[in-house]
């Protein structure tokens, strides 16, 4: 298979859009406009990012890489923040958490020569790490909020028995981390059996030998595994404290925000 798809071939992609479009027409789903707009939008977005990446890959690595990683971390922070908007200090926590994760992972890649410090390698791989960490942090925040609500009775019981907030929330931290890690353990377990991971598929289509593609996939999969664990742990261990007052009293997430605003 040739790694190059010609523009004429690309044009025939329209057929793939015609299928849902005709479905929408015949069954009067009222989605025709949406289907056309989203297909066009997706195409434009992808080409745009293609040109941006081409531009970045041509830049000096010491400019292109920090620039793009900063952009990715800022966007990811604002996105993950939505899951815990009502909590104090959530944005800086996520922001520093993502920096911590990215810097640790990148250092290991470079230290052990797994990845070269070139924009074409570091940027897409960092994108995957940051993207997955962002999702993990968002999930951890959401999970932690619901665990705090569901277990408020147990937390009160623990505090009333003389537990420090850290001891009282041990169970919640444990459950939040558990929930963040289980899907990843499962994903690693079935990797390559259920579906070929995206990066590997891409490399194979691009003409890379399967064994080489697998090596890259291993690097990225295990990097994601570890960064997802680190992100969830970081955000959980920093944020649980905001559910308590300095006098070791339990707050709900709204109260936490009120307390935070009143502290100025």
């Amino acid at each position: 298979m040739s790694p190059e798809i010609s523009n004429q071939s690309l044009l025939f992609l329209i057929i793939f859009v015609v299928v849902p479009l005709s479905l929408s027409y015949f069954y009067q789903l009222g989605m025709s406009k949406n289907i056309i707009v989203s297909s066009l939008r997706g195409t434009i977005q992808l080409f745009a990012i293609g040109y941006i990446l081409t531009f970045l890959f041509d830049l000096n690595a010491f400019i292109g890489i920090p620039f793009m990683i900063t952009v990715m971390i800022v966007i990811a922070s604002f996105h993950a923040r939505k899951k815990g908007k009502e909590l104090p200090y959530v944005l800086p926590t996520i922001f520093f958490g993502l920096i911590l994760v990215e810097v640790s992972v990148l250092s290991l890649w470079l230290l052990f020569d797994m990845v070269e410090f070139t924009p074409s390698e570091v940027i897409p791989m960092s994108g995957m790490v940051i993207g997955n960490s962002m999702v993990a942090m968002g999930l951890a925040l959401e999970r932690m909020k619901s665990e705090f609500t569901e277990n408020s009775g147990r937390l009160l019981a623990a505090l009333s028995l003389g537990a420090e907030p850290k001891q009282a929330s041990h169970l919640i931290v444990q459950r939040t981390l558990n929930a963040a890690l289980i899907p990843n353990v499962d994903r690693i377990k079935t990797i390559g059996l259920v579906q070929l991971p995206g990066m590997m598929t891409g490399l194979i289509l691009g003409g890379v030998e399967p064994i080489m593609a697998i090596k890259y996939q291993l690097v990225i999969s295990l990097s994601i595994f570890s960064s997802v664990s680190l992100s969830a742990m970081f955000v959980t261990l920093v944020m649980y404290k905001h559910f308590f007052t300095k006098n070791k009293q339990l707050l709900d997430s709204e109260e936490a925000l009120k307390e935070y605003s009143s502290r100025g």
Partner: peptide, 16 residues
């Protein structure tokens, strides 16, 4: 606080 809470024990409505 923790000493007080141990000396003034609380039993909630549900066992928790």
């Amino acid at each position: 606080i923790t000493t007080l809470r141990q000396k003034v024990g609380l039993l909630l409505q549900s066992p928790n």
